[in-house]
């Protein structure tokens, strides 16, 4: 099960990196978003990874492939943490209204979040090692942009096989 989850995350991040990892293709890159600041984005807005690449103005030929590999490697390590966070969220829903049962779940969520942040810090430290001084000066904003990047994407459609149709049934 764990290896399957890892495969899922790696596949998603890889495909995202391959398709999204192009610096600012005229879609208004460089927006500051991250933890709570990027809401209300339209579907054509740049993704987290695009924003990250754009913010740091990564060199497409030299730096980008290395950064993609860093994110892939760390994503694989972080997959079990993402899975745990999702499981805890589900349990928190089930125990809503029962403070005695919620407290340990929230404590566990906090601990898992700390491990996820550690993964983000690890990836970012490796990226920083590749950066030039002018890029390093944007570290703070760039780190904000990768909040939660190792979490799996949320569903955007009711059924992966369904196409067309409106929003209601």
């Amino acid at each position: 099960m764990k290896s399957f989850i890892s495969l899922v995350v790696v596949s998603l991040v890889l495909s995202a990196a391959v398709t999204e990892g192009r610096p600012d293709q005229g879609r208004g890159g460089g927006a500051t978003g991250g933890a709570g600041g990027g809401g209300g984005m339209s579907v054509t807005d740049p993704t987290q990874f695009e924003q990250f690449v754009s913010k740091l103005k990564l060199n497409e030929k030299k730096q980008l492939p290395e950064v993609q590999k860093i994110f892939l490697d760390v994503a694989a390590e972080a997959a079990p943490i993402a899975q745990e966070l999702t499981r805890l969220r589900t349990q928190m829903v089930a125990e809503y209204g029962k403070p005695d049962r919620l407290a340990p779940l929230e404590a566990a969520f906090n601990a898992a979040s700390a491990r996820m942040v550690a993964a983000e810090l690890k990836a970012f430290a490796q990226v920083q090692a590749l950066l030039k001084p002018d890029q390093l000066s944007k570290s703070a904003d760039a780190f904000v942009l990768i909040a939660g990047i190792f979490n799996p994407p949320t569903p955007r459609s009711p059924s992966p096989m369904r196409r067309g149709g409106g929003g209601d049934q």
Binding site: M1, F4, I5, V8, S11, L12, S15, A16, V18, T19, E20, R22, Q25, V43, T44, D45, P46, T47, E50, Q83, R87, P152, P153, P155, R156, S157, P160, M161
Partner: peptide, 30 residues
């Protein structure tokens, strides 16, 4: 858990692949 993960995988990959076909636009966009 397996079904939920499989759904996420399919959604993510289909979105990413369709984005690739559009020249690198964000997955699932448009």
């Amino acid at each position: 858990r397996f079904v939920a993960t499989a759904v996420l995988l399919v959604i993510g990959l289909v979105g990413a692949l369709s984005a690739q076909g559009r020249g690198g636009a964000p997955p699932g966009g448009g």
